[in-house]
Design a protein around this nucleic acid. Structure first.
Lengths: 356, 356
DNA sequence: CGTCGATGCCGGAACGTTCCGGCATTGCCG
DNA sequence: CGGCAATGCCGGAACGTTCCGGCATCGACG
């Protein structure tokens, strides 16, 4: 049973004890009455605003604690013209789930620290009262906004303060951007591969709907040009499942016998390629190096462990929320960009290369 | 800057038009004035309550649409003493992430269909204004509540209408339960293994903090007793990573040479065991059968594909939210339990067994 | 023709908070 | 002793919605 019955609501009020909470919700007036002060003073005392003597302040907070007073969010937000809530949108990409899960938890954590709630906005909301469903939030965090996503498009044009994780490839700019230098990290990875003797590294990467994929792709081509290497890439859909990725990899291995290293960009894609590679008669970490652009449990615990770029999703989520709060507080000006550090973890799968 | 400029909002207003919204928010009074009716009538017209002629109703809705009126959630909820939001709690278990991601999206989807928002409640909120942070929601959905989780404990005793996915092993009962018959599914799996000639199936399963794990464990032992098979289980932590699971499996394979089938309960654990098994010189789907209690992408695309129980997480999340709304509406009585269908998917990894 | 119910609409009063302005009281300084 | 600022506290008025009761109007019916 949730709430107990609401019968007896009209129970006789003792005219002398004005503080009887009966079974009604305990409001700030309950607290004020019990403490023998006005609601204004109670409010000021609890929030540390206005001018209240230390003595009264303590009294009021004690009474509030005793009564178990919890301020009514709706009333507060109505008065303050804020909702105390931020919206979080993520592409619904299950194969990428551990990344986004971490991201979510980071954002929620940061929001909680600021007294904010996080509500989730999915792309699948569809049908319902579309007009009605304008999100009632103070601001938005968009994780990996895709160019094609209609929900993202709508949110981006919603007049709400918005922070994106990675740039938005579509029209319009968010008020804040948290981004990581995937290009630099990938370059480091490519240099490392070259250093251990790789001559023809190939790249499996999603299309350019996401800024992350686009910059990975771009960097790869640049690096190839600089080094005089013939680029070798295969595109997969952003939400490609392991099956699609495997097929692509299989073809790549068959068609390009000169291939000596494989970089699978999508989260956890690299791990699912291990069987494919083995089937093709290649040995990972030996005559074929393997790496991923997104680290995760699957990389760390694969056999052999796979070199990958740790993009620190949890911290990224938190950073996005933090930046949004600073924007909401006016502490930073719109248009700000913030760099989120990532790092390359070199593991067995690329330790050294042996000729086939 | 995200939002386009706010200038020009004050476009010349006809002085006789009482609807001048200035640059203020467009409220129901704006709509009422513009439509030439009272706020009550406007409210009634928009919500279909009260007595309003069809003609005025249409007029009001047209005006509202034209002005882009969006009702203020805080005001509405303040008046109605509801928040229009449900809270969702999940154990923060990243290795199980694709399951929970699906669950979340299902719940959000269902909530959106009912005009509700979903806010996330994490176990890690810790520090902050702990007293203050009582969640402002109308009800709770707890996915896989763990016996040990202090946040779950607090939420369970919060007097809020609560639905759990799977039973809560701790003290107290939720108002609604959505559960699946993991026992029956596991039994089906075990029978299948026996049918293809398995004599000694082992089970790797988390401890009994979760009802799911407990029932899997219980069923396994019962089945063993019935069949006269010596049970062989190993426990891992609920949030065991692939590393821990692999170690357990390795030991199992070394210590128990008679082992001819392995069931790894945790999500995606089975897939990460493939290399371990291969190292031990066993062949999956041949002289060692392998299955998982939770299906997912990793199972479907493993090589060989792994037999697993599809627990339909997205539908489970939606079902939890649905049940909660029915409880909130008083359509069902507290204490209700609802069975959520799951099914066994038999794949290559257990198709038939060959002697070693 | 008087009455009565149905119909369409409306004005106020909540809901619980915050915030603006104001009123005593006190202390300080010239 | 008079003015004046600082201090502590307070009463109302918002915020935008819903809902209760009431007031006309109108047609029907006896």
């Amino acid at each position: 049973m949730g709430p107990t019955t609401r019968a007896g609501r009209r129970a006789a009020h003792d005219a002398y004890d004005r503080a009887v909470p009966q079974d009604r919700q305990v409001t700030i007036i309950t607290v004020a009455n019990r403490a023998g002060v006005s609601k204004t003073t109670a409010s000021d005392a609890l929030r540390g605003s206005g001018r209240v003597s230390e003595e009264t302040r303590r009294l009021v907070t004690d009474v509030a604690a005793e009564l178990g007073y919890v301020p009514n969010g709706s009333a507060r937000h109505l008065r303050r013209a804020r909702t105390g809530t931020i919206g979080l949108h993520l592409p619904e990409v299950l194969p990428r789930s551990d990344y986004y899960m971490s991201f979510v938890f980071g954002a929620v954590q940061a929001a909680a620290d600021h007294g904010y709630d996080v509500t989730l906005l999915t792309s699948g909301s569809g049908a319902g009262a579309t007009a009605e469903r304008r999100p009632r939030v103070d601001g938005l965090v968009l994780g990996d906004p895709l160019a094609a996503d209609p929900v993202v498009e709508k949110l981006m044009s919603s007049q709400l303060p918005t922070v994106t994780c990675e740039r938005y490839p579509g029209p319009g700019d968010p008020d804040g951007i948290v981004w990581s230098d995937h290009g630099a990290a990938l370059r480091e990875l490519l240099d490392h591969l070259a250093a251990v003797g790789t001559l023809r590294p190939a790249l499996i990467v999603p299309g350019d709907e996401s800024d992350w994929a686009a910059s990975v792709h771009r960097t790869y081509r640049q690096w190839c040009t600089e080094r005089g290497v013939v680029p070798l890439t295969r595109a997969v859909p952003f939400d490609a499942n392991a099956d699609a990725t495997s097929t692509v990899a299989r073809n790549l291995l068959t068609d390009e016998p000169g291939l000596d290293a494989l970089i699978a960009a999508p989260t956890s894609a690299a791990a699912t390629l291990l069987p494919v590679i083995r089937e093709a008669g290649r040995r990972v970490g030996d005559d074929l190096l393997l790496a991923s652009c997104v680290d995760g449990p699957a990389m760390r615990f694969a056999d052999p462990a796979i070199t990958a770029i740790d993009v620190q999703p949890r911290e990224a989520g938190a950073a996005c929320a933090e930046l949004l709060f600073e924007l909401l507080a006016g502490a930073v000006a719109p248009g700000v960009e913030r760099l989120h550090p990532i790092e390359l973890n070199i593991r067995e799968s690329t330790r050294r290369r042996n000729a086939p």
